[in-house]
């Protein structure tokens, strides 16, 4: 029997359809309708961590606590202090409560609470949108500890990640940052940490370079040294139920930013128990 062209095309279509329908059965991880990892897939594999932070917004109402955190980070990472708000670079900074946690604010929220300054930084999301859009692999979710890392060598400055991040955690270097980096008397930057260059995006890395040598992030260390700031920032492995972050998350009422987006932030906030009275001392 000689196959007609029409029949050949029909059979080819049926084979393609059949093979395509079978693909999801081959790999159970490929089910595209799960919004974010659930069940076994959500748990970190054996031996992997997820670093996380709990910010106590009440303790961080003290301006000296916030200032110490921001200052420690800026010095540790040679973050440039560019006065122009349109070009400023920040890793950790303060924003009003109503902007940080818009889902917690309603028409009758006390204005003192709305304006209360809250520390913000990269959330090191479980499902980071920035990573999904990066065309060069310059930013990625590190499997071993869940840090959303940056490799400045690979960044081409397309700023897709900045558009994708719902938290504004990323800053672009519109110009060479060196002139705005704090220096020692001899003109060298205060830290050995590489400065960035014009045309790359930067953000908080949970102090990956400090964690590597067993030290806590600079902001956490700085907060604990300020009187009244002990425990303002708690850092640890959220996949370990015995860690301090896990304990705080169990015991206190915590929220995180814009949960509805499904990004799975790993920076959590202990909300104030009462409306702050001494709020609005200015942003750190």
């Amino acid at each position: 029997m000689s196959a007609s062209r029409r029949r050949f095309l029909k059979e080819l279509g049926c084979i393609t359809l059949g093979a395509g329908a079978g693909i999801p059965l081959l790999d159970p991880d490929l089910t595209p309708w799960a919004p974010y990892p659930q069940g076994e897939g959500a748990d970190a594999a054996a031996g992997t961590r997820q670093w996380a932070m709990v910010v106590d917004t009440e303790k961080c109402l003290r301006p000296e606590v916030r200032a110490a955190c921001v200052e420690a980070c800026n010095r540790e990472h040679n973050v440039p202090r560019i006065p122009d708000a349109e070009e400023e670079v920040h890793w950790i900074w303060s924003e009003p409560y109503e902007h940080v946690l818009p889902d917690q604010v309603h028409a009758h929220t006390a204005p003192e609470l709305k304006d209360a300054p809250v520390l913000v930084l990269c959330n090191h999301c479980t499902e980071p949108a920035c990573v999904k859009v990066c065309p060069t692999g310059a930013t990625w979710k590190r499997e071993s500890d869940g840090i959303v890392m940056m490799d400045m060598h690979r960044c081409i400055g397309c700023r897709y990640c900045m558009a994708a991040c719902p938290y504004g955690s990323r800053s672009f270097n519109w110009r060479d940052p060196r002139p705005w980096v704090e220096t020692e008397a001899n003109g060298k930057p205060v830290s050995d940490y590489p400065t960035r260059t014009k045309g790359v995006v930067e953000k908080c890395t949970f102090c990956a370079e400090r964690l590597r040598t067993g030290r806590p992030p600079a902001c956490v260390e700085a907060a604990n040294l300020v009187p009244g700031g002990e425990g303002a920032l708690v850092f640890g492995d959220v996949s370990d139920p015995e860690s301090e972050v896990s304990r705080v998350l169990r015991e206190k009422n915590t929220v995180c930013r814009r949960v509805g987006l499904g990004t799975g932030p790993n920076v959590f906030y202990v909300v104030p128990t009462a409306v702050p009275t001494a709020a609005g001392e200015g942003r750190a």
């Binding site: 990625w140 590190r142 071993s144 890392m149 490799d151 060598h153």
Partner: peptide, 11 residues
Amino acid sequence: WRTSVVRDGER
């Protein structure tokens, strides 16, 4: 070295 340290966590 950079790839090992930054991506693979080997020091």
